[in-house]
Simulated scan of single mutants.
Amino acid sequence: MFRNMLQSDLFFVSLAILLASHEISGEITAEVQNAVNLPKCYSCEGINCLRTTRLNATVSCSDKLDICVTIYEDFAVSERGCFSEISLAGQAKCAAKDDQCQKCSGQLCNNQGRRDFKCIQCIGSDSESCNKGATASLTASQCGLPTSANSYCYVKVVGNKKDQLQRGCALSVKEQKSCLEDSECSLCLPDNSSDAVACNNFDLDLSDKSGAGQGQKFMSLGVAFFALLLLKFLN
């Protein structure tokens, strides 16, 4: 009887150890699995890097120790992918520690612009200092991935009453064109920035534009009327 009780106790102890070991093994396996996943990177080459439809294209690296990279021509993206699989020219930029190569470790981490592509990014409705520009201590931050051959920072007048400023990164041709066509928006080149000051720290006039607009229209009409009189006189 004593032997049967001892065998029974040993059975339950062994079962408990087995279950505990299985649980711990399961947890370790999950952690190890996460640690050995092959890196995945955003991928593109050439003109495809400037197409918004290709922004989310990805590739899985073949080496667990590989990293993601983004290669630039000036500020325009020319390549993205796993370091071991990009062009030799791109790898050479990375080897030379060129600003036109940006490396990162982590899943899908190569989704940023160049480290020196920085703009002030704020809106006056959230921060009053955003409306003050050069007189405020506004900090620039790294911009997202551009899909344009040229990268710009911008400042524009916003709000229902046109009484606020917004500052940010103009990443696409559409955004840049929209700003150029807006008399209350202005672009600047990020290479005019420094570590301390972004190029879009300047101010725009938040006063009512209607008076200036009417004055410009009146001046245009006056010039046109004078031109007609001159033409009549010459004939």
Rank of each mutant, 00 (worst) to 15 (best):
R51A: 11
Q121S: 07
G215S: 13
D74Y: 13
I123D: 08
S125I: 06
A30Q: 13
S8N: 11
C82E: 06
A196G: 10
A212M: 06
V223R: 15
L6T: 10
R54Y: 13
K97L: 07
K217C: 00
N160H: 07
K209E: 04
S178H: 08
S151Q: 03
E128T: 06
M1W: 07
Q91S: 13
L230A: 06
G159Y: 09
A57G: 00
S193G: 15
E27H: 13
G26K: 12
N192Q: 01
A196S: 13
N150V: 02
A227C: 02
L221R: 02
K174D: 10
C44V: 10
L108S: 13
Q164Y: 11
C41P: 13
A140V: 02
V155G: 01
A96T: 09
I28S: 08
L55Q: 13
N131P: 12
V59S: 09
G106C: 05
I71P: 10
N160K: 12
D74N: 14
G215C: 11
R54C: 12
C153F: 02
G144H: 08
V77S: 10
S151T: 15
E23W: 07
S210T: 12
D99C: 03
S210H: 02
Q216C: 02
A89Y: 05
S62W: 05
K40D: 08
F202S: 14
I86Y: 08
L18N: 14
D116K: 10
L108K: 15
K40G: 13
V155H: 02
V158K: 02
D191Y: 01
F226D: 08
S21Q: 08
L228R: 04
C68G: 15
S148A: 14
K161D: 13
F75L: 14
T135I: 01
L65M: 12
A170T: 03
E184H: 06
S207Y: 07
C199I: 01
